[in-house]
Structure formats: C-alpha cells, structure tokens
Design a binder for these strands. Structure first.
Lengths: 207, 207
DNA sequence: GTCTATACGCCGATAGAC
DNA sequence: GTCTATCGGCGTATAGAC
C-alpha cells in the first residue's frame, strides 16, 4: 500500500496548503487529547496560525473539521480495500493485505490509526456511521463471508469471525499506540497475523 | 461473582441514597453520551434533582464524580480479581472466572462495562492510570505469567498473550455493548472463551 | 486573506435565602 | 438540605478594519 491518505499527505515534502495544515494539526490534537479537549485556538496554534478566524475561512465550524477528517480517512480506507480486493481473490491474501496496511499505518501515520481505533467518533460526530457499518468494513465483512463459502475460513458467524480477528489485530495495535507495547507495530506483525488468521482459518489444527 | 459493585448497587431494591443516585445517573449518562456531552444539569435531571446545587452538596466538582465512579469500578474489579485468585490456583480457572465476570457484567451492568471498555477515561481523568496499569490488570498479567511458568500457557511475551486474549474478549463484548452483535453477551460466552483460551494455552493443538 | 475586537451562550461553580 | 439567583470564564462564532 503506497497510496497516500487522500489529500492528507502523511510524509509529504511540500509544505501543506492551508486547509491541509489545519486538518493535520487537528488530526494530531484530536488523536492526542481528544476532540473536546482541543479548542480551535489549539488547532490554530498547532497550525502556525495567529488567530482562529483564519480557520473559519476554510471550515464552517469545528465539527466540520472532524467530519472532513473522518471522511478523508474512511474514504481512503475504502479505496484501499477496493484496491486489495482487486489484486487478489483469496480471502486469506486480502485479509493479510489489510493487516499489512493497518500495521504500516500504525507506524507511519499513528494519528490516523488513533483516530480509527481509539477515538469514539460517535461522541462528536453522532450522525456518522459506527466503524463496522462503514463501507470499508462492510467490504471486509464480505471478504470474510466469501472466505467461509470458499472453505478458507471456518463456518462460523461472520460477525464473530470479525470480532475475533480484529479483536486481536486492533487490540495489539491499540496497545502499541498507547505505548503499552514498547516496540514498533512492525515487530509484532508476523506473529499477530498468524494468531488472528489461525483463529478463523479452516485448515488450522485448532478446532 | 455475586459481589455487588461497591456502593453502586446494580440491582438493589432499596431506592439509592442521594450520592449513589447521582453516581448512577452520571454513570448511565457518561456511558451513553460520553463525559463531555453530559452536563451537570443532565445528571441532576436524570437523578430526579431539581437543581445542580444539590450535586455540589456531595461532590466538589464534575470531575470528582467521574473519579468516584472510576475508583469504585476499579476497586471492585480489583477485589473481584483477588477473590478469584484465592478460589483457584490454576491460571486457566482464574482467567475463566474473570471472563465469566466480564460477560456477566456486560449483560447485568452494561454501563459499568461501557465505562471500562468504551470510555477513554484519560480524556477526562488524565491523572488516572490507564487500564493496563490498574491494580486489577497488573494482577491479571501476573496470572498469565504464572500460567506460563506452570506450563499452562505458551511461552510468549505475557503482554502479547494479554493483548490477544483480551483482544478477543473485549472486542466481542464491545460489539455486544454497541449492538453490533445482536444477542446477549451470554450467548457468545462459551465459544469466545474457548477461542481466547486456546489461542494462548499450551496444550492446544494450535501451534 | 489575515488580524482585532467583540458578541453570545453554555456550563461549571458559588452565595445565600428559606 | 434543597432551591433561586447570579457570577465568571472559556470557547465558538461573527463583524469588520487593514
């Protein structure tokens, strides 16, 4: 996955334009302190802007900033999942690629993963869909369902498979993001993938 | 586990005294809407109190209410873990009892589990320890370490074992609490315990 | 297009009557 | 011990000068 996160360049060299500067500052602060603990002044300060007014040149209000981030992140995730589904047919390989993406993002763009995994978006974006009803995750559910039909994945409730699989993946990544695991996500990727996949895979000797 | 949650009776018949009425109302609202979306007026209203002032008779400020809840919940969890460690020596049985407790609480006292699993307490109680540094979870980590030494649990990093084990358990319970799984937690308990335990147990045919 | 100044509301918190 | 009234501040948002 070499696709950038939409207009939100993770590691671009060109200094960000104003709207992106604001979004990046907001993303960082939301991820670190939470939505309600960051004021527009905080965002302005972090974006090297003197006053709050400039923010209103680009966004109608604070919530819109969060919504723009939300849409950018989930649109991009959705596009990545589409990409992944196109490149392979096997559920195992598709899930593997998604796990790759998540681990890579955790190391390279932790703020984005914090937004995805740690923030309770329903508290400040009540209209938005919860994580699992998001297009990206609906597609991931389909991958699992396909895997079950194809005999790659054990014949259990797909939602349960998803709960277990991403329970392992996301909890491990959450602990990396929280500093409760001290190495980079990359160090845990291989064994965590194995644990999660073997748990739902049919060929495993587990069940 | 028949122990009540401290002074916070979950299903007591006797109408709660004033401080508990406030705490129960706050717990419910914090769990449902989040800390920052609930005002003291909301709490007063939910506690059948006419004005906010009455709250200040019992608590110094809003944060203290949250802190009292936090302490009550974690003290109780800690006591439960002590109980469990006393009743059995085997790590498997101890972990099993903890899982029993979590599933039971999810069905019987969802607000408490929402507070535990879903709320980001660091956002409104920044001084408090994160979940895993809490006495209860330090003891749980010890259970896992003991299990490794005893040969019950695979010889992996205890933190990783914890990440996987509670990744499965907590994510499943989170999905129940969010309504993403439609049955009661009880319906998923047996298979979820098996999945989590087999993942870290040594005797499993998995690895 | 960036800044100054200001308006407005909500909420946490307090004083004090009864 | 419960209520009325009110304060003060912060944070969102806007109007308008330059």
């Amino acid at each position: 996955m070499d696709q950038e996160i939409d207009t939100l360049q993770i590691s671009s060299e060109t200094p960000a334009e104003m709207p992106d500067k604001i979004l990046l500052a907001a993303l960082k602060l939301f991820a670190e302190k939470g939505y309600f603990n960051t004021s527009l002044s905080d965002i302005a300060h972090a974006a090297d802007i003197k006053t709050i007014s400039t923010i209103y040149q680009h966004f109608n209000n604070k919530q819109t900033i969060a919504l723009t981030l939300y849409n950018s992140i989930f649109d991009n995730l959705d596009a990545s999942v589409d990409d992944i589904r196109r490149k392979s047919e096997k559920s195992s390989e598709q899930l593997r690629a998604i796990v790759d993406l998540f681990f890579k993002l955790t190391d390279d763009a932790p703020n984005i993963m914090q937004f995805l995994l740690l923030l309770k978006t329903s508290e400040f974006l009540p209209e938005q869909k919860p994580l699992l009803e998001t297009p990206a995750f609906v597609k991931i559910l389909k991958i699992i369902q396909t895997g079950i039909k194809a005999g790659e994945i054990r014949n259990i409730d797909p939602m349960i498979a998803m709960a277990y699989f991403f329970g392992i993946i996301n909890n491990t990544l959450s602990m990396v993001l929280n500093g409760e695991l001290d190495k980079k996500a990359d160090a845990y990727q291989a064994q965590t993938w194995l644990a999660a996949w073997n748990l739902i895979a049919k060929k495993s000797a587990c069940f």
